[in-house]
């Protein structure tokens, strides 16, 4: 298993029992797309469509890899390493 830190904010924390940050063991050799699918199946209890459609993150949810915009890191194709911090931030809630 690979150990990563997951962060949920901007309202997404409500999909994972209000947890904003969790240290999580995930299967080895996941891509970020694979991680998104894994989170959807294993951590999210309800309203899955607010997070992703399969491995495709919902448009309007920002993803950061170690605090860097995932668009600079290959998005879904990024290979997860132990110790990575992945942040999911919704922009879809009122302002």
């Amino acid at each position: 298993m690979t150990s990563v830190v997951l962060e949920f904010s901007g309202g997404l924390e409500l999909l994972v029992d209000g947890k904003k940050r969790l240290e999580q063991e995930v299967p080895d050799k996941l891509t970020l797309g694979g991680l998104i699918g894994w989170i959807r199946s294993n951590l999210i209890k309800e309203r899955h469509e607010l997070f992703s459609q399969g491995q495709r993150i919902r448009p309007g949810v920002l993803v950061l890899i170690n605090d860097v915009d995932w668009e600079l890191e290959g998005k879904e194709t990024y290979n997860l390493s132990s110790g990575d911090c992945i942040s999911f931030i919704s922009t879809l809630h009122g302002g």
């Binding site: 309202g11 920002l62 809630h93």
Partner: peptide, 16 residues
């Protein structure tokens, strides 16, 4: 806007 708030650690509340 969201990344600015995130990187600057601004205190906001998000709910539907």
């Amino acid at each position: 806007i969201v990344l600015y708030a995130h990187y600057k650690s601004l205190d906001y509340f998000a709910t539907e």
